[in-house]
Amino acid sequence: MNIFRLAGDLSHLLAIIILLLKIWKTRSCAGISGKSQVLFAIVYLTRYLDLFTTYISLYNSIMKIVFIAASGATLYLMYVKFKATYDHNHDSFRIEFLLIPCVILALIINHDFTVMEILWTFSIYLESVAILPQLFLVSKTGEAESITSHYLFALGSYRALYLLNWIYRYMAESHYDLIAIFAGVVQTILYCDFFYLYITKVLKGKKLQLPA
């Protein structure tokens, strides 16, 4: 555990908490892509299956359980409790276009051809693109509430901080995982345009509004 990794994990946790609080306090999930949230739930479930097989640390296990639970709670709020506020019409990204390539890629490029390893690899690939339906939703509506922007910023920062963590680990421990690094780079690149808008607009108190 190094400072970049810890900061990344905390940023990830913060993102999830911001999202849950936003939905709970406003009693609405307007502007949030249910499809991205479904993809994240799949990511957590397929990656954290190792809760049952491998013990790494108490920290690790607790974080995994929190991510799965928070993801489930988010889906419950979006698809059950505040279903009426869910922005169906704008959330029209076809997730099979992400799921199918990720399954195929995980079957071809993986560290080991075992069920657990392929599921882990699939979850890494899927996570890298899981935000696309959300970014698509923002681009369709042309704007995002500030709180949604904070959520996206925290969520994007998490993988960017992991990139620093991987550089650190490569130098300090000669540890590296090319699959995680490649997917992490892709994931971070997808947020770059948003990061730019966040820094130039949201931090200056303006609403995140895309040029018409």
């Binding site: 790494i56 080991d112 992991y162």
Partner: peptide, 10 residues
């Protein structure tokens, strides 16, 4: 070496 004998990250 690339570790695939247990992923220790989240």
């Amino acid at each position: 070496s690339p570790s695939h004998s247990g992923h220790d990250e989240l």
